[in-house]
Amino acid sequence: MNRVVGAVRTAWWWTGSLMGDHDYSRYVEHLRRNHPDAEVPTEREYWKARYADADTNPGARCC
């Protein structure tokens, strides 16, 4: 049973990674590590800026 639960959790995490679920947290870690004086955007601001860039540069997105 533990193996099944572990496999489901791994699959869920992997799927989330593909969908970008972890992108904001990785970005915040990057800012805090490399740019400690930079203001950290809210998650909403992050996604809005990310998709605004994709709209102005369609080559930046995968689909």
Rank of each mutant, 00 (worst) to 15 (best):
G6M: 08
Y46G: 01
G20V: 13
W14V: 15
D55T: 10
L31R: 01
R3C: 08
C62K: 12
N2P: 02
V40P: 01
R44H: 07
R61P: 03
R9V: 12
N57Q: 13
L18K: 07
D53I: 04
C63A: 11
Y24S: 00
A11P: 02
A54F: 09
T10P: 02
T42W: 00
W12I: 06
R3V: 11
V40H: 01
D23G: 10
A38W: 00
R61Q: 15
D21W: 12
D55V: 14
V4G: 05
P36I: 01
G20E: 04
E29R: 07
R61N: 15
D53L: 14
H22I: 05
L18D: 05
G6I: 03
V4H: 05
A7T: 09
R50G: 01
W47C: 02
N57T: 09
R32L: 04
C62V: 11
G16H: 05
A60M: 14
E45V: 05
Y24V: 02
D55S: 13
P58L: 15
Y27R: 05
W13P: 00
S25R: 07
A38R: 03
W13C: 08
A7F: 10
W13E: 10
G59Y: 14
R44C: 10
W47R: 05
N34L: 10
T10K: 12
W13F: 15
D55L: 15
R44M: 10
